[in-house]
Design a protein around this nucleic acid. Structure first.
Lengths: 120, 120
DNA sequence: TACAATAGTGTGCGACATACACTATAATGA
DNA sequence: TCATTATAGTGTATGTCGCACACTATTGTA
């Protein structure tokens, strides 16, 4: 009910937007399946729920950034995803864009940011 | 349609999400009106259209992060926005979250990035 | 009159979260 | 052995909401 904490949550969620894509692409230089990605990313501080990740994977595949193949040899069939050639290029460009955003944001943040700062 | 460049654009746009809010909040330690913000931010590398900024300002005000007052003394009436007390707190928390995101993203990005070379 | 400055609104899109359903294997107990 | 349950793993439907974009409205000024 219009709580500040509530708004903060929304804001933070918005802030995270798009970053998950980079996170996923970054892990797919070698084939991974959905569940392993959830584990890997969670291990690196990027928590994502399966119900969020799977649609993202399919979206990226549909856009041609990922290739996928089913592995039915193992006990459970798993769908492995891998960066396509296009995906690699897009990933690089995306990282570049990300760096740019970080840069400009850091500029405006640092204008006022040394008054109460807990940087260690 | 379905061009790679097209997808890239979308991805980048998503990446920018939420960052505009930080940009705006960062400038409102002192009162600014919409049009001046467009100029200021654009000057700092954050391009935003009035039609994007105004709804954002009103949203943030409705959420209690901004205070506003009309200045009708000048030739044209201008609506000045300023960080509220809550806004300052949220801004700090948001910056903290931002730092965290930047940090984890940097980790996963740096994992790979030496194998591929100029994609052109 | 025309244009720039300034503010506002409406609509559509799309990623994400959430909840849910489904399958197959493994483990457990009767 | 067979039913039941847990869990690993994948897939889908829906709702929310911020943002981009294209509008409109007003006013001051050249």
């Amino acid at each position: 009910m219009s709580n500040v904490n509530d708004h903060l949550d929304k804001l933070m969620q918005e802030l995270r937007r798009g970053t998950l894509t980079i996170g996923v692409l970054s892990q797919l230089s070698e084939p991974q399946y959905g569940y392993s990605l959830v584990t890997m990313l969670g291990d690196k501080g990027i928590h994502v729920e399966p119900g969020t990740l799977y649609p993202l994977l399919r979206r990226l595949e549909k856009q041609g950034l990922l290739d996928s193949k089913w592995d039915t040899n193992e006990s459970r069939p798993r769908k492995y995803y891998l960066l396509s050639k296009t995906g690699k290029e897009v990933y690089c460009l995306l990282v570049g864009e990300w760096m740019g955003i970080v840069d400009s944001l850091n500029h405006v943040i640092q204008q006022k940011g040394e008054e109460e700062n807990g940087a260690d």
